[in-house]
């Protein structure tokens, strides 16, 4: 498609070059303190995975032609559902409560996203407003339910995923120690989901149809495809994956439902745009955000970074997103029919 044009605009635009320089400088700063990579990378991956899943969900939805601004809320629903499930079952089920929690998060997200699907597909509602309603509803309803079911706005779980070395692969020098030691199993699940999604969307006729629904729905409809069904699937997947993202936050680094995912859902939408609505692009974009967040969080304990005021690190991901959007929005690779009712 317009792969070449975006690449051209990236390399020729002064802003694009500026972004590369900034990112490069940060990477260099990290490289310079080499042992830091080993310290930062596991956290960076941990922060990346929920974003990756949610942005991937957004990819399904937007590729099928439905803007989903409710990702933040859907993440929160998954976060809550898995916290509640694990909280209630961890005594009896022990470690197997964790996968059950993930499953609950996925289902809850998918179920909740049906509200958005119904509004934007059947009722042809304004999808941005419907998404906003989903966010507000999720943040009010989850805390409401947490208070009535668990007795407090915060739901804590005792269990968490134990980090494990991958047998065999962790022995590879360099890469092995970086990627295959001390990893969460949920990370591998997420990467498999990502790979499978790429295959489904780009290598099967089903995926072609789904993407066509986001580009030219009437053409697809005239070929006998059920556009409504495809869009329901896209929105449902976005709910399921955002729910998965929320659940992964819980069982990896949070350990407690506290009523907010702090803008990660919106950051995922930005990553989707940043990644130009492509699986590989969003992998890169979310990894960038994950790394930036990690650097912001650890900057105070690292002497080399401690000299820079922490506010710079905290606003860094958002400022870079704005800059990136400036570069990418001019020639947007967004699906053509996204946001339009059919």
């Amino acid at each position: 498609m317009n792969n070449t044009t975006t690449k051209q605009s990236l390399f020729t635009s002064p802003l694009g070059i500026a972004i590369y320089i900034v990112v490069g400088l940060v990477l260099l700063a990290v490289m310079a303190t080499n042992h830091l990579i080993g310290m930062i990378l596991p956290y960076a991956i941990a922060y990346t995975i929920p974003l990756l899943m949610t942005a991937l969900g957004g990819l399904y939805s937007e590729r099928s032609g439905v803007t989903n601004l409710g990702l933040e809320g859907l993440m929160l629903v998954g976060y809550f559902a898995s916290a509640l499930t694990i909280n209630l079952t961890e005594q009896t089920l022990q470690a197997s409560a964790l996968p059950l929690g993930l499953l609950a998060g996925v289902l809850a997200g998918a179920l909740f996203s049906m509200l958005h699907a119904f509004a934007s597909i059947n009722l042809k509602a304004d999808q941005v407003i419907s998404g906003t309603a989903i966010n507000m509803l999720a943040s009010a309803l989850t805390v409401y339910l947490a208070r009535t079911i668990a007795g407090s706005g915060n739901v804590r779980i005792m269990l968490g995923i134990v980090r494990r070395d991958i047998p065999g692969l962790s022995k590879i020098p360099g890469i092995g120690t970086l990627f295959f030691t001390q990893s969460y199993w949920s990370t591998w699940v997420a990467l498999i989901v990502w790979g499978a999604s790429w295959f489904l969307l780009y290598k099967t006729s089903f995926g072609l149809r789904l993407r066509a629904c986001g580009e030219h729905p009437s053409a697809v409809a005239s070929a006998g495809v059920n556009v409504y069904g495809m869009r329901y699937f896209g929105v449902g997947m976005s709910g399921a994956l955002a729910g998965l993202g929320g659940s992964i936050i819980l069982i990896t680094y949070s350990g407690e439902f506290n009523g907010t995912v702090a803008g990660l859902g919106f950051l995922s939408i930005a990553a989707l745009i940043f990644g130009q609505w492509k699986p590989l692009g969003i992998l890169g974009a979310t990894f960038f955000f994950g790394t930036a967040t990690t650097i912001a969080n650890v900057s105070q304990v690292i002497p080399q970074l401690g000299v820079i005021p922490p506010v710079i690190f905290k606003v860094f991901p958002y400022v870079v997103t704005l800059l990136a959007l400036i570069v990418f929005s001019k020639r947007s690779a967004a699906p053509k029919a996204v946001g339009e009712a059919f």
Binding site: A119, L123, A125, I129, S130, A133, I134, L137
Partner: peptide
């Protein structure tokens, strides 16, 4: 809000 969005 949800019902306003689906005002149709």
């Amino acid at each position: 809000i949800y019902f306003t969005a689906t005002s149709v």
